[in-house]
Design a binder for these strands. Structure first.
Lengths: 324, 324
DNA sequence: GGCAATGATGAACAAATGTGTAGATATATG
DNA sequence: CATATATCTACACATTTGTTCATCATTGCC
C-alpha cells in the first residue's frame, strides 16, 4: 500500500514532537482502543515503533494501570494487621505469583495510596528500594505548591541503575517539589568519618529537615545474598555473614535490626549515613511498604520499631505477620 | 499434579468468590504482567474465562488506565481557552480518531480530574449524559466522609440503560456518599404541573441542596437527531424542530439555549424539572465536560452562560472554541 | 417431569502483539 | 576523515490475545 513515493516513513506530524506522539499513541491504544496497526497508520510510523512506544509508556509511567478493587481476603488481612499491630491503615495486595512480582504489586498500591495523601506544602522523606522505585510508575504527576522531598539515605558509591538520590530526584520531578539529598556515601568508610560527615553543614541541614517530615515512605531490606544491598555489592559478603552473626534480620534505611527491631551492635551500624530509626519513629505519617517472604522477619522488626501509621504489603507476608 | 479426581476444572480458591478472582486476575495481568494462560492455570480456569474476566474489569472500571501526560498541543489549547474565556482550568484531551471516542476520552479526563478534587464533606451536583457516564470508569472508588451527591435533573419516564438517577446513584455508591434525586420526570407534562411539582416538599429540598453545591459536574447536549435526548425518544421529533425554530442550539440540564447562552422562549423550557442555569452559575466549582463538533455551538453558549471554573473537552472542539 | 429459552463454556480459528536479528543510520572518537 | 559505537528500523517469526460457534448446563414455564 506504500507506493513508490518514499521509502522512509513520513511523519504525519500532528504538530508535536517525539514525546507528543508517544502520548497520542498511548491515548489511542488505551483509551480509544485502536489497534497498534491503526495507530501506526495514523501517525505514519511502523507498527513495531508504536509497539515500542507503548512499552516505553508503560515502563516510564506515562501509562498507568490501577486496580480499583480489593479481594475479600486482602481486606480481612488488612483489618487483622491493623488490630494486631495498632496500624491505622494496612493495605494488602493479592499475593503475586512470581516472587519478582511482589515489588511491582506493592509499588502499585503504594503509588495509589500516595496519590490520595500527597498535598501542597508537604515535606516528604524517602527511603529507597525496588518497591519504592516501582511506585513511581503509579504516582500521578501533578504540580504541588511548596512540596519538599528529602532523601533519607546517603548516595551509592558504585554507580547503579537506581540510587537513592536519583529516586528522590525523580519523585520530586514528578510532583514539582524541591529536593534535598545527603551528599555522602550511604556507608561511610569508618565510624569516625561518619561522625565527621554528620557535622558537615550540608548534611546537618538535610538531617534537620528529616526530623521535621510530614510524611515518610520507607521499606526494609532482607539479609540474604539476593537482597538489593548485596546483589549490587554495596556491602561485601563478609559483612553479610557478620551481620547475621550479630543477630541482624534485615535493614531499615541501612540500619540493621534484630528480630525485635533493635539495631544490632555491629560496626556497620556506626558507619551508616541515613536518618535514624528514632527520627523515623517520630514522623507523624509514616508509610512502610515492603513484602515478600524473605522480608517477613525484618518487616516484623520494623513494625515493632517504627509503629508506622500505614503498612502496605502482600497477602503472603500479611498472613505471616498476622500469624506471628 | 492433576490426577483423575475431577474433570471439571476445580477452583483453586484463594478463599474468595467470583468477584475476588476477577480482581486477582486483573492484578496478575496488569500489575504483574503474567499472560492470560498463566493466570488461567493458576486460578484453575480456562484462558477464555480469564480473557472475559479481564474485559469485564476494563468495562466496569475495576481496571483503570490513565495517561499521565498531555501533548503539547493540548496544553497550549488549554491555555488559550483559559485566557479567552476566563476559565480557571481548561483540560483538553487529544483528538479521538473516531467520533464515538470523544465521550470516552473526555470521560477519562473528567474522571482523572475528579480524583484530584473530590474530598470529604463535599456536596456534588451531577448532570447527565454519555460523557459523565463514561467518567465513572475512571473515578477511583474511595470512602469519603460526609459526601453528598445531588442529581440535578429529574428522572426519565422511559426506562433507559442509563438514567440521571442511576448515574447519581452509581457515583454516590463509588464514593460512599449520600444521594439525592429529583423524584419527578425531567420534562413535566405542562408548565403548570412543573410549577406544582416545584412546590412539592421533596423536590424543594433537593433544589435547595442544589443551590448550595460545592462542586457541580455538567455537560451539554446538541440538537440533532443523533443526540441522546432524541435518540432515546425522550422528546418527540416535533419538539426538536420547534426548538430549532426558536433559535436553540442545544441544552444544558434540559434547558435549551440559543447561541449566546440565553434560554430560548419555548414551552419545553417551562416544563423542565432540573436545576436552573442561574443556580449552576453560582456554584463555586463548576465543571463543564463535553465535546464533539456537533456540540461546538452549545458549548460556546454554555460557557458564556455559566462561566465555568473548569472546562474539559477534546482537541477539535477546543480548536473551534479558540477560533470562535 | 419435560421443554424451550437463556446464558455460560471451551475448542478452533483469526487477529493482534511481542521478539530476535540483521542491516541502516546517526554519533562519537581516534 | 575513516572507523567504532550506539541507536534506530524493518522484517520474519513466535507468542499471546480475541472471536466465533457448536455444545452443554441452568432456569423458568407449562
Amino acid at each position: 500500500m506504500d507506493g513508490a513515493e518514499s521509502r522512509r516513513p513520513r511523519r504525519r506530524d500532528h504538530g508535536g514532537g517525539e514525546a507528543d506522539q508517544r502520548v497520542r499513541a498511548a491515548w489511542m491504544y488505551y483509551i480509544e482502543g485502536l489497534t497498534q496497526e491503526e495507530i501506526a497508520e495514523r501517525l505514519g510510523l511502523s507498527r513495531v515503533r508504536v509497539l515500542r512506544m507503548l512499552a516505553e509508556c508503560r515502563e516510564d509511567g506515562t501509562v498507568q494501570f490501577r486496580i480499583n478493587a480489593r479481594t475479600a481476603n486482602c481486606i480481612a488481612l488488612g483489618q487483622t494487621l491493623e488490630a494486631r499491630y495498632g496500624i491505622a491503615h494496612a493495605i494488602v495486595v493479592p499475593a503475586p505469583v512470581a516472587e519478582a512480582g511482589v515489588t511491582e504489586a506493592i509499588g502499585a498500591a503504594l503509588g495509589d495510596y500516595l496519590n490520595t495523601v500527597l498535598c501542597d506544602g508537604m515535606t516528604v522523606g524517602l527511603g529507597w528500594g525496588q518497591t519504592l522505585r516501582a511506585s513511581l510508575k503509579h504516582v500521578v504527576s501533578r504540580k504541588f505548591d511548596g512540596m519538599t522531598v528529602v532523601s533519607l539515605l546517603g548516595a551509592l558509591t558504585r554507580a547503579s541503575a537506581f540510587s537513592p538520590s536519583e529516586f528522590a530526584w525523580r519523585f520530586a520531578d514528578l510532583l514539582d517539589a524541591d529536593c534535598y539529598f545527603l551528599a555522602a556515601p550511604v556507608i561511610a568508610p569508618d565510624p569516625m568519618t561518619r561522625d565527621l560527615l554528620f557535622r558537615h553543614a550540608g548534611i546537618e541541614e538535610v538531617m534537620a529537615r528529616a526530623a521535621r517530615l510530614d510524611l515518610a515512605i520507607v521499606s526494609v531490606g532482607d539479609l540474604t545474598p539476593e537482597s538489593t544491598l548485596f546483589r549490587y555489592a554495596m556491602l561485601p559478603e563478609v559483612d553479610l555473614q557478620s551481620l547475621i552473626a550479630a543477630g541482624a534480620v534485615g535493614d531499615l534505611l541501612c540500619n540493621f535490626l534484630d528480630e525485635n527491631g533493635v539495631p544490632v551492635d555491629h560496626e556497620i551500624n556506626r558507619r551508616v549515613i541515613a536518618a535514624s530509626p528514632e527520627t523515623m519513629r517520630r514522623v507523624p505519617h509514616l508509610v512502610l511498604a515492603s513484602g515478600g517472604w524473605r522480608k517477613l522477619k525484618v518487616m516484623y522488626a520494623a513494625i515493632r520499631l517504627l509503629a508506622p501509621r500505614v503498612l502496605i504489603t502482600d497477602e503472603a507476608t500479611a498472613e505471616g505477620l498476622a500469624a506471628l
